[in-house]
Amino acid sequence: MTAHPPTRRIAFLATCGLVLALAMGCGGGPETAYGTLRGSSLNGTGAFAELLRSQGHEVRAARRLTDETAGWSEVIVRFAATPGPPGRDEAGWYARWLTQRPGRSLVYVVRGYDAEPEYWDRVLAQLSGEDQPERRAEAELRRGRALRWANRLPPAAEKPADPGAWFSLLPAVEPPATCKALGGPWAQGVDAQAAAIPLRQAIRDEPGRTTALLTGDGKVLAAEWRVEGGGDVLVLASAAFLLNLPMATPARRPLAEQVADWIAAEPSRVAFVEGLDPLGPPRGPRTLLELVEDLPTFRWIAVHLGLFAVVAGLARAVRLGRARREPPPGAGRPAAHAEALGELLAQSRGGPAAAREILGAYRRWRSGDETTERSS
Rank of each mutant, 00 (worst) to 15 (best):
Thr99His: 03
Gln201Pro: 00
Leu22Ala: 06
Glu257Val: 03
Pro328Arg: 08
Ala260Thr: 03
Gln258Trp: 05
Phe241Asn: 02
Gly87His: 11
Pro282Val: 06
Glu293Leu: 01
Asn43Phe: 13
Ala260Asp: 01
Ile10Arg: 00
Leu359Val: 12
Pro5Leu: 07
Leu245Glu: 06
Val107Phe: 09
Leu169Ile: 07
Gln100Met: 08
Ala150Cys: 02
Thr211Gly: 11
Glu357Met: 02
Gln258Leu: 02
Asp261Lys: 14
Gly92Pro: 12
Val220Asn: 09
Pro85Thr: 08
Pro86Gly: 04
Ala177Asp: 06
Arg374Met: 07
Phe308Ala: 14
Ala80Trp: 07
Ala317Asp: 13
Leu341Pro: 02
Gly321His: 15
Gly216Tyr: 13
Trp93His: 00
Arg145Asn: 14
Met1His: 11
Thr99Gly: 12
Asp232Thr: 05
Pro278Tyr: 08
Pro6Thr: 04
Ala315Pro: 05
Val220Pro: 10
Thr45Val: 13
Gly321Trp: 09
Ala80Tyr: 08
Gly229Gln: 03
Val310Asp: 09
Leu52Thr: 05
Thr7Ile: 01
Gly189Thr: 07
Pro175Lys: 15
Ile197Pro: 02
Ala157Thr: 00
Glu68Arg: 15
Gly189Ser: 14
Arg8Val: 12
Thr7Arg: 04
Val173Leu: 15
Gly39Ser: 00
Ala223Gly: 00
Met247Val: 01
Ser41Tyr: 05
Asp89Tyr: 06
His4Gly: 00
Glu130Trp: 09
Leu234Cys: 05
Glu274Arg: 02
Trp149Asp: 10
Pro117Lys: 08
Tyr94Phe: 15
Gly17His: 01
Pro185Ile: 06
Phe308Gly: 15
Pro185Ser: 11
Thr32Arg: 13
Leu147Tyr: 01
Arg209Met: 08
Ile10Gln: 01
Ser367Thr: 15
Arg96His: 11
Ala139Lys: 06
Ala61Phe: 09
Glu116Met: 14
Pro267Ala: 13
Val220Ile: 11
Ala335Asn: 12
Thr7His: 03
Arg325Tyr: 11
Arg299Met: 02
Ala23Tyr: 07
Asn244Cys: 07
Ser54Asn: 04
